[in-house]
Design a protein around this nucleic acid. Structure first.
Lengths: 94, 94
DNA sequence: CTTGCATGCAAGCCTAGACTTGCCTATGTT
DNA sequence: AACATAGGCAAGTCTAGGCTTGCATGCAAG
């Protein structure tokens, strides 16, 4: 579970997707692609971003909600907190 | 810089190395290899572990100290703290 | 000074996974 | 009905990097 989080964060493209989702919740696949190209100079196809979102979702870092033909994606930082405690000392875990 | 940290954490073997270094500081390459094989069922050659240590060191997650023919490795969690703040909200950064 | 131990360097192999291409489904619009 | 939009699926390509192999270096002990 924690390993999935670090594997997901291993790809720069997925970190950029989290950056995009961090600024605004409930974004569709097309919105994310548009912002990646426009704001991050990352030129990926829609399918590539879709696959990255699947990885992020199965790692628990992204939650999605289907609404008619749209699918809205939202970041979930909870798994991040759990993952980071792995190498912290006792007092650092606060 | 922060990207280097996440790239370094992307490989399971490197996370296991950090696990080993987390339990005890100032371990040599051979000690780390021995503990990986014994405690983590990770069977890597000395050279593989050495290369992983270089990646971890250039990411700032491991500091090393040379003493005659031994090289001692120590974990440094400071870059972790900086990296984790990337997707946290304002109040979460505490 | 030879032998053994701890590590470094360089080159090649080889697989995981990042990315694309092409086609398909579903929903909304006209 | 046709058409456009939002997304999914599956198969193939191709490169980064994880890992190995072989040799070199540096230090210590006998």
């Amino acid at each position: 579970m924690v390993d999935d989080v670090f594997d997901a964060l291993g790809a720069p493209a997925r970190r950029a997707i989290l950056d995009v989702l961090c600024l605004r919740d409930d974004q569709t696949l097309f919105e994310i692609v548009t912002r990646l190209v426009g704001d991050h100079d990352i030129d990926l196809t829609r399918q590539a971003v879709s696959q990255h979102l699947q990885v992020l979702e199965s790692a628990g870092l992204v939650r999605s909600r289907r609404e008619s033909r749209y699918k809205f994606h939202t970041i979930d930082t909870a798994p991040l907190h759990a993952a980071m405690r792995r190498w912290l000392t006792e007092e650092e875990r606060s």
